[in-house]
C-alpha cells in the first residue's frame, strides 16, 4: 500500500505495525507517515482500531495488560519502541489529549505547571509563570482564567477543561500532540472553539486527531486516514478522501452506508 503521498519530511513514521491484545489482533499491518505541517485525522467506525493505533504513537498502550506492539514506529527517525528510548521523555515529546477532559483536581496553575515541573523546564518561579501564561495563551484560555489561576481545574466548564488539558500538554513543548476524540464530550460551541484552536496550533506541532465525526475531520485536517477492522484502508489528502475516495469501503463509510 502506498503511504503518505507527497508528504515532506515526516515527523513520525509507522511501518508494518501490528497490535495484539492477548490473542486478539487489533491493528493489522499499518504503515503511515505523519508530518509536522498538517493536521492528520484518523476516522473510521467504532472499534476499527484508530484509538489503539494513536495510543501506540506515545506508547500509552504499555499500560494496558497483555498489549503487544510489533513493527516499527519512529519519531524523527528514532525507534520509539527501542530499549534505549525513554518512555517518559517520549511522552513529553509526544503529548496527548484524551476523550474526556481530565484535569487534575488541583488549581488551574498547577495543572499547567505540573509537566514543566516534572521535566525541570522552568529555571525560576518567574520562568514558570511565563511558561504557564504562554501555554494558556496558546490554548486560548488565558483571558478567561488569568484572574482565577488558583481555582480548581475541575470547577470549569467541559470545554474550558479540555482547553486546559491542551494547555497542559503544550506546556512541556511537545513536538507531536495526539488527540483522542477531544470533542466527543463537548457541546457544539465548545467543539467549535477546540477546532479553532487546533487550526491555530497547526504548523507548530504535528497534530493527530482521532474523530468519529466526519465533518470535524473535513474541517480541521489536511490529511485523513480511514481505518476499518484494524487495517488502514486509505490515507490521503482530506479533500481527496472526501470528494474522491479510491476504496469502496471509504466511499461507503463517508456516504453513510455504515459506521
Amino acid at each position: 500500500m502506498n503511504t503518505a503521498a507527497g508528504s515532506p519530511v515526516p515527523k513520525m513514521t509507522a511501518r508494518n505495525v501490528n497490535v495484539f491484545y492477548g490473542q486478539k489482533q487489533a491493528i493489522k499491518d499499518v504503515s503511515i507517515d505523519v508530518s509536522r505541517e498538517h493536521v492528520t485525522a484518523f476516522i473510521g467506525p467504532s472499534g476499527c482500531g484508530k484509538s489503539t493505533f494513536l495510543r501506540c504513537l506515545n506508547r500509552m498502550n504499555d499500560t494496558v495488560d497483555g498489549a503487544r506492539v510489533e513493527g516499527r514506529i519512529e519519531l524523527d527517525g528514532q525507534d520509539i519502541y527501542a530499549s534505549v528510548m525513554d518512555v517518559v521523555q517520549l511522552r513529553a515529546r509526544v503529548g496527548m489529549v484524551f476523550q474526556k477532559p481530565n484535569p487534575f483536581p488541583k488549581s488551574i496553575y498547577e495543572n499547567v505547571a505540573y509537566g514543566p515541573r516534572l521535566h525541570g523546564l522552568a529555571r525560576s518561579r518567574a520562568d514558570m509563570d511565563e511558561i504557564v501564561e504562554s501555554a494558556l495563551r496558546r490554548a486560548g484560555l488565558w483571558d478567561e482564567v488569568k484572574d482565577r489561576l488558583g481555582e480548581s481545574g475541575t470547577a470549569m466548564s467541559g470545554g474550558q477543561q479540555q482547553r486546559l488539558c491542551i494547555a497542559r500538554a503544550i506546556a512541556v513543548d511537545p513536538e507531536v500532540i495526539l488527540m483522542d476524540e477531544p470533542c466527543s464530550a463537548l457541546d457544539p460551541i465548545a467543539t467549535a472553539r477546540i477546532e479553532e484552536l487546533i487550526d491555530e496550533l497547526r504548523g507548530r506541532y504535528a497534530i493527530v486527531i482521532v474523530t468519529h465525526n466526519m465533518q470535524q475531520a473535513a474541517r480541521v485536517s489536511q490529511k485523513t486516514a480511514f481505518f476499518h477492522l484494524g487495517t488502514l484502508v486509505e490515507y490521503d489528502d482530506t479533500s481527496a478522501i472526501f470528494t474522491n475516495p479510491k476504496a469502496t469501503r471509504t466511499k461507503d463509510y463517508i456516504t453513510g452506508r455504515y459506521g
Partner: peptide
Amino acid sequence: VPPSIRDAALGIGAS
C-alpha cells in the same frame, strides 16, 4: 481514583 487521572499524568511524561 479515576483512571483518567493516571492517563493524564502518564500522558505528559510522569513515571
